[in-house]
């Protein structure tokens, strides 16, 4: 597959009457990984939730095109079955349901060997525990990524994959994401990703093709992710605001 994986066109979204996205557009080609920078509350998670299709994120205007199909009004499970997967920042726990059982459901018919995959990332002992119940920060991320790996989506939406993860585990998390996005593959990549980060640390482990800065529900800046990240590290998001003023981009 070549061409565009995801196209977001002028997306306006509200949650409980409050506008959270104000005309977002972006385009992720097949095989590319894009990164979304921005402060807490800038609308990054809202964008991911809207792409996944959660009903409380009401699309007022705009379109979401996935592999050439308008999915703006499809329920989440249909989007999942078409090939979109999401890694939650704070996933809920599900009492009485074993992780193994959920992984089997995620895998559907793609025949992933759950046991082997869990062993590869040192997560075998968690297969027979209740989903996410009592998991530490790093364990939650591994649980999320293992679910995504067996689901094997064409487009992975990753919400702050490095938050709450200690240094020892971040390497494994990075490895899991690279596998998910075929980063170590020599063949032309078929998997795309959209990663949210506000620290940017994940870029040390997962190379990205393009970066965006999101402020107050809008994407203002895009370019080389490493350069954007370095800029933010040096000057903070304040500088982005100043830069905007200099460019005098219209605010609506």
């Amino acid at each position: 597959m070549t061409g565009t994986m995801l196209e977001v066109q002028d997306l306006w979204v509200e949650v409980e009457g409050k506008e959270v996205l104000k005309g977002v557009s972006l385009n992720i080609p097949v095989g590319e990984t894009h990164v979304l920078f921005g402060r807490n509350g800038s609308g990054k998670t809202s964008l991911l939730m809207t792409i996944m299709g959660f009903p409380e994120y009401r699309v007022r205007h705009g379109k979401i095109i996935f592999k050439g199909e308008d999915i703006t009004h499809l329920p989440p499970y249909e989007r999942a079955r078409k090939g979109i997967g999401i890694m939650f920042q704070r996933p809920p726990s599900i009492k009485g349901v074993k992780l193994r059982e959920l992984l089997e459901l995620c895998a559907r018919e793609n025949g992933y060997r759950i046991q082997e995959l869990a062993r590869e990332f040192g997560f075998e002992d968690f297969l027979d525990r209740d989903v996410n119940l009592g998991f530490s920060g790093g364990e939650l991320k591994k649980s999320e990524l293992l679910q995504l790996l067996v689901q094997s989506p064409d487009l992975a939406l990753l919400d702050e994959p490095e938050s709450g993860v200690d240094m020892e585990n971040i390497e494994i998390i990075g490895k899991m994401i690279r596998k998910l996005l075929q980063k170590d593959s020599h063949r032309p990549r078929q998997k795309s990703g959209l990663i949210i980060t506000h620290t940017g640390f994940i870029l040390n482990y997962v190379p990205a093709d393009r970066g965006y800065v999101m402020l107050d529900g809008r994407i203002y800046c895009q370019g080389n992710p490493q350069e954007i990240f370095e800029g933010i590290q040096k000057h903070g998001y304040e500088e982005c605001l100043k830069c905007l003023k200099r460019m005098e981009i219209p605010q609506s």
């Binding site: 959660f54 499970y77 009485g96 959920l102 459901l105």
Partner: peptide, 25 residues
Amino acid sequence: EIEYLMARGLTEEEATSLVVRGFLN
């Protein structure tokens, strides 16, 4: 919990019955 499972590809009914079964387990 229902929405979480729907994002993994389960329909609302499938997600509900899984959560209920977990509760009874």
